[in-house]
């Protein structure tokens, strides 16, 4: 039928068809590349950087299914199937590691949220702005110290002889003789939790304080006229006001559930508290770098990333079902 069409119409049709195609086709891509070459020039080098440093290492996960020998080339490795995972999950030590990881992570998560929200509420209730400023500035300070420094401060404070914690507890008559805090494995989780709160409570409260400034002040005024007490205003106005921020942060943090921290544990760990201190990251480091068992360490690391992903998506789904704010 096309022969019966006049050339002008044919040309029109051809153009229309190609225009539709061009929307998504390669030609569209190249045209855009040409048009926006400056933006490409600014971003593509870093996209390549991202690919090399963040995506290529994911290919290293293949090692988890091999019996990787660093001396051999990448393609000469022997395959091990699921042996590394079998060894991992059949290993009693691994269960202790998982227990420590989850316990410290959950303690840090719960303590972190509770203390940060509590501090934000109390700061918000201070009437003297200058005093509030000073307290806030001091409470952020430890966030800027390195874990190396904080670990030093913690071990000084917990020292057997002359440590401030033992001194106070002895004075108050709570204990009769000084305790070797870092020498008793059972105390380790608590020490990590407390150190983490000390270091980050001020910093973590910032976001809640910011959310509180968004709350409509008229609500407080109306509540006051209705005779609501201070506590009631906190419970019924302030807390619901920061709920969306809380939910988003909770989802993000649940994605990091196996991220119980590395530096604090590594720096405060010793031979006496090791059974409660060693977590997944330290395990990976010990097997991978110190014992050069790359395959096993990679399997453990891979396990961690996959679990984190599942938790993140799970938490996001639940938030969606409950009609809460969500991450994506």
């Amino acid at each position: 039928m096309s022969q019966s069409m006049n050339p002008v119409e044919a040309e029109k049709e051809y153009k229309a068809r190609n225009k539709y195609k061009a929307k998504r086709g390669l030609r569209y891509f190249f045209r855009k590349c040409k048009e926006q070459k400056e933006l490409l020039f600014m971003s593509v080098p870093f996209l390549i950087w991202l690919f090399i440093f963040k995506y290529i290492p994911l290919g290293g996960w293949v090692m988890a299914f091999q019996d990787f020998k660093p001396a051999k080339g990448f393609f000469e490795q022997e395959w091990a199937g699921l042996d590394n995972f079998r060894f991992l999950f059949g290993n009693e030590r691994f269960f202790e590691i998982m227990r420590n990881t989850l316990a410290m992570s959950i303690i840090n998560l719960v303590l972190g949220f509770v203390t940060a929200i509590a501090l934000a509420i109390l700061l918000n209730e201070l009437r003297n702005i200058a005093f509030k400023r000073i307290v806030q500035t001091i409470s952020y300070m430890p966030h800027f110290l390195s874990w190396v420094v904080v670990a030093g401060l913690v071990s000084t404070a917990l020292a057997m002889e002359d440590g401030i914690v033992n001194t106070i507890l002895l004075h108050l008559g709570i204990i009769d003789s000084p305790i070797m805090w870092l020498g008793v494995a059972h105390y380790f989780w608590g020490i990590i939790g407390a150190s983490d709160v000390w270091k980050s409570v001020g910093w973590n409260s910032i976001i809640y304080l910011a959310a509180m400034t968004m709350i409509n002040q008229e609500q407080y005024e109306a509540a006051e006229i209705d005779g609501a007490k201070r506590i009631q205003r906190i419970l019924y106005i302030t807390l619901p006001g920061i709920k969306p921020v809380f939910v988003i942060l909770l989802i993000m943090n649940i994605g990091y559930i196996l991220e119980s921290g590395f530096e604090a544990q590594y720096l405060l760990m010793n031979s006496m508290n090791m059974d409660y201190a060693e977590n997944l990251d330290i395990y990976v480091l010990r097997y991978g770098i110190s014992m050069a068992d790359f395959s096993l360490a990679t399997a453990a690391g891979m396990f961690k990333t996959i679990i984190s992903f599942i938790f993140l998506f799970g938490a996001n789904k639940i938030a969606e079902k409950l009609g809460e704010a969500r991450l994506f």
């Binding site: 440093f53 963040k54 290492p57 994911l58 290293g60 090692m63 990976v284 790359f294 990679t298 990333t305």
Partner: peptide
Amino acid sequence: MYMNAGLIPTYLL
């Protein structure tokens, strides 16, 4: 942010 290859692959790279 959520897809971390882990210590060993990064080290080898």
